[in-house]
Design a binder for these strands. Structure first.
Length: 576
RNA sequence: UGGGCGGUAGACUAAUGGUAGGUCAAGUGCCUUUGGAGCACUUCGUCCAGGUUCGAAUCCUGGCCGCCCAGCCA
């Protein structure tokens, strides 16, 4: 997997201030809290709390934008905190990638924190709860605990170890910490209510024994706090005023409050919002990890992955992602956002900022019979018609050029305006040409088209005001350069990839055509200078960027997104 | 089934008792040296039934539908 971050110094990574700030219910709560001085004169403090057990994805981007923008809008700060309470799943590689991704998205945290920074404090608080008779060591096995927990409709039963003395609990917990007991043999539990209708309150586990090396604390600990015991207190220690998380944690709030109240410490306000779901996309770290491990993709940063590193490598811009997050907002309704929405904000951003280039993906040779042999001209081309400041470049032109196979039809269907025998089109920025004849191979495929050109139409305008129906792109055969072009498509074939038939798992919905590699493309010579991370619009084709796999002599482009194609729509409609 | 949380066009989201608005998608037209971009227009909506009110997407009651919770994961 590549760790390069082609865009870190790129203009596409503008600061986050420009992000729109639409209204949402969380913002309303903050405004209200400020008005009523719920947190006194304290400034708004938020945090983004990922577990370093995988790479960040577009769903995390939504949370990041919410956390950082909200604090920023009201003059507050945001911490980046790693919820690293499970050493068996967490790794430094993930810690590093997460920091890289948050920065790339355009955000800078106030403090870098780790739940593991609080292990000593959390342990001291656990002792305090034991002394107060609010926590106990349980010897039940995991299976027994599950059975004692009851069900959704039936209350649980008290563990036989629930009423141990404070002294015994203190002794046992101390010995758990010292490593006297094997993994899984005992846990520390909060003594709350085994009959609570909220399962989280049925004496939840606070600590488990795990003789595992932690990526930060090494072998200092062999007991680790559960997320539920660590999260609220971590927020409290950082004086987080507004603690945003996803909907599934709503049921945990009473538990967090219970710990905070028992301990008498600063109460943060938790606000839950809906997770992002995107059509044709899976946003589950577990499943994304499976795609990586089973090599359905090349890595976490495979350009088909919805990870930040994947879509970055694909060529997406941070600003486009931020604009998308602003547009989808936040609420408490679970739904699924159309992937087109994400793509729209990428196209919008890329259209403004990237230079155009001419590239022929599937070449068809064109010979201009009345163009002088040996003559070579340069035509002047705008780098970006949307942006006059982007300047101009010279592109070589001569008698033999390549055009797109799709741009010629021997027998044009209705409404097909491109080149066909007897028809005149404009070669972008160059000349008007009219097709005169074709050369076919043994199979009857057109392998070469002959044309004549109008020398008076240099630059693409005819002095007599004659119009053509279409403009096509081209690349001069003599100067064309080669590249590997990777065309990416959706990773899944179903809008809801988790929708399965009998006996399938989600990998059954993988799109077998999500990657197509083109090796015959012809590129205008200027692209030979492109460096990893550079973005272009290949005119009439789509947005592309240079992949970090690029080596001297082997240019590699990723297709970020195709341009919208209204001809494809017409064709589809005609075919249907 | 106990508990929690939700239901505004095909999708996402505003309207905080007073004109149901925006974005995406879809469609039509204009324009165009990218069938791109842009511009204009159009289609389509408050889950249902009652109630309160001059007035309800909003408040109340009762349904219906959906999501989450029975890890020593987060």
């Amino acid at each position: 997997m590549t760790t390069s971050n082609p865009e870190s110094k790129d203009a596409a990574n503008t600061p986050a201030e420009s992000a729109p700030r639409p209204s949402n219910f969380i913002r309303d709560i903050v405004i209200e809290d400020l008005k009523t001085k719920k947190f006194g004169d304290a400034v708004i403090q938020t945090r983004f709390p990922p577990e370093p057990n995988g790479y960040l994805h577009i769903g995390h981007a939504k949370a990041i934008c919410l956390d950082f923008n909200l604090a920023d809008e009201f003059g507050g700060k945001t911490n980046l905190r790693f919820d690293d309470t499970n050493p068996e799943k967490e790794e430094q590689e993930y810690v590093d990638s997460i920091q890289n991704d948050v920065r790339w998205l355009g955000f800078e945290w106030e403090r870098l924190c780790y739940a593991s920074d609080y292990f000593d404090q959390l342990y001291a608080w656990a002792v305090q709860l034991i002394k107060a008779g609010k926590a106990y060591v349980d010897d039940l096995t995991a299976e027994e605990i599950r059975q004692y927990r009851g069900t959704l409709t039936e209350p649980g039963q008290d563990s036989p170890y629930r009423n141990r003395s404070v002294e015994e609990n203190l002794d046992l917990f101390e010995r758990m910490r010292k490593g006297e007991f094997p993994d899984g043999s005992r846990v520390l539990r909060a003594k709350i209510d085994m009959a609570s209708p909220n399962l989280n309150m049925r004496d939840p586990v606070m600590y488990r024994i795990l003789h595992a090396e932690h990526h930060r604390t090494g072998d200092k600990w062999c007991i680790y706090p559960m997320y539920d015991y660590a999260h609220g207190q971590s927020d409290s220690l950082e004086q987080i005023t507004h603690s945003m998380c996803t909907l599934e944690f709503a049921d945990h709030q009473p538990l967090y409050k219970w710990f905070i109240e028992q301990l008498g410490i600063f109460p943060s306000q938790q606000i839950e919002f809906d997770r992002l779901n995107l059509t044709y996309t899976l946003l589950s770290k577990r499943k994304l990890l499976q795609l990586v491990r089973e090599k359905h993709v090349s890595g976490w940063d495979d350009p088909r992955m919805p990870t930040i590193s994947g879509i970055r490598r694909r060529g997406f811009t941070a600003e486009g992602i931020r604009n998308f997050c602003a547009a989808i907002g936040a609420s408490r309704t679970n739904g699924s956002t159309d992937i087109e929405m994400l793509e729209h904000f990428q196209r919008e951003d890329l259209n403004k900022r990237v230079s155009r280039a001419m590239v022929v993906m599937r070449p068809l040779k064109v010979v201009i019979d009345n163009y002088p042999e040996g003559l070579q001209e340069l035509v002047e081309v705008a780098n970006n018609p949307e942006d006059p400041n982007a300047g101009y470049r010279q592109v070589p032109f001569s008698r033999e050029i390549y055009i797109e196979q799709d741009d010629f039809r021997e027998v044009p269907p209705p409404k097909y305006y491109r080149l066909s025998p007897g028809k005149e089109v404009r070669l972008r920025n160059a000349y008007f040409v009219t097709a005169t004849s074709v050369v076919k191979d043994a199979q009857g495929q057109v392998v070469e088209v002959h044309c004549t050109y109008d020398p008076a139409s240099y630059g693409g305008n005819s002095p007599d005001g004659r119009k053509v129906k279409s403009t096509i792109h081209w690349v001069c055969a003599k100067h064309a350069i080669a590249a590997e072009i990777r065309l990416y498509d959706k990773l899944f074939t179903k809008a809801d990839p988790s929708q399965l038939e009998e006996g399938e798992n989600f990998t059954s919905n993988l799109n077998p055509n999500s990657l197509e590699i083109l090796l015959d493309a012809k590129l205008e010579p200027m692209l030979g200078l492109a460096k990893a991370g550079d973005r272009y619009q290949f005119e009439r084709i789509g947005y592309f960027c240079v992949d970090p796999d690029t080596m001297p002599g082997n240019l590699v482009f990723n297709r970020t997104l195709p341009l919208k194609d209204s001809w494809a729509k017409i064709e589809k409609k005609a075919g249907a």
